[in-house]
């Protein structure tokens, strides 16, 4: 009894220490975001007097638009990305992971190859393409690709998960008269829920971070994302450090909250969602 309790507490102690180690730089970040620029060069972790103005002024930005506007823009874009990514990646992954069709291997190789070519060399032709379609300075070039399978990474990820599901389940459903479509909707889709949550989280975080695409495709300020607005604090010689650190700390918060809330779905896992079909 006591040893069990002791083990529990030592585990908590270990995890807390480990978390602090991982979080140490973040604690630095919080402190730095409250400092005056002159104070940033000091080795202290915390400012002598916290500058909450870094947050309020940073949020107010330049008057015409505040960060409320940029957060709303980004969240709207993210909604499209996540919905598109989760739905279509699952559909495509089922095709690759469970069905036999002509040239499956060929198309799957192509899918993987698209990941291996560095994006830096396709970005210009892609921009020219979207420019010809008059779709630049809109969210379309940023959101649309997510509706086409969400990217090779996620398709491959889900394929691996689908291949981990025993085929006995399909066979049983087939005997009940289910088709490939039925098996997808009733068996596979619910069973890969932890992986789908992963796809949703990663889609969210990675598109939040995707500065290169955003700077290219969004040019009017009223369409700016949080990432673009943040870069406005940085100029050639002049960086508004306090506001930059404050706002970029806030900008990771939606991802943190999302991760915190979504993880109970990993925890459920197959044991509670699965098998009953």
């Amino acid at each position: 009894m006591t040893t069990a309790a002791g083990a529990k507490w030592s585990r908590h102690l270990f995890l807390t220490l480990f978390s602090l180690l991982m979080l140490y730089p973040v604690i630095w970040w919080v402190g730095a975001s409250l400092k005056k620029t002159e104070e940033l060069s000091l080795p202290t972790l915390w400012p002598s007097k916290p500058m909450w103005e870094n947050y309020s002024n940073g949020w107010r930005f330049s008057g015409e638009y505040t960060f409320t506007h940029f957060f709303a823009n980004t969240l709207l874009m993210e909604l499209g990305n996540v919905v598109g990514g989760v739905l279509t990646a699952a559909i495509v992954a089922y095709g690759f992971g469970r069905l036999n069709f002509k040239l499956r291997g060929f198309w799957f190789s192509i899918l993987l190859l698209t990941m291996m070519l560095p994006g830096q060399v396709t970005v210009v032709p892609q921009y020219i393409l979207f420019n010809k379609l008059s779709l630049v300075d809109s969210y379309v070039p940023l959101v649309l690709p997510h509706f086409f399978g969400g990217g090779a990474f996620f398709i491959f990820l889900l394929v691996q998960f689908i291949r981990g599901i025993p085929r006995d389940l399909d066979e049983a459903a087939k005997i009940d008269g289910a088709s490939v479509y039925g098996i997808f909707l009733r068996i596979v889709f619910p069973l890969i829920k932890p992986a789908l949550i992963t796809v949703a989280i990663f889609t969210f975080i990675w598109s939040w971070d995707d500065f290169f695409a955003q700077v290219l495709y969004l040019s009017s300020v009223d369409k700016f994302t949080v990432g673009l607005a943040l870069r406005m604090f940085i100029d050639q010689f002049d960086i508004q450090w306090g506001q930059l650190l404050a706002m970029s700390l806030l900008s990771v918060m939606p991802s943190v909250v999302l991760f915190f809330l979504a993880q109970k779905h990993f925890v459920e896992g197959i044991a509670t969602t699965g098998l009953k079909g």
Binding site: L135, S179, G182, L185
Partner: peptide, 29 residues
Amino acid sequence: MGKRKSQGAVLTLLASVLLLAACGGNSES
């Protein structure tokens, strides 16, 4: 759920996804 019905469901899903993408395009651009 019969085969035809689920096929319909998947098709509807696909169609609505594409439609959503297209709508997104229009309203945003």
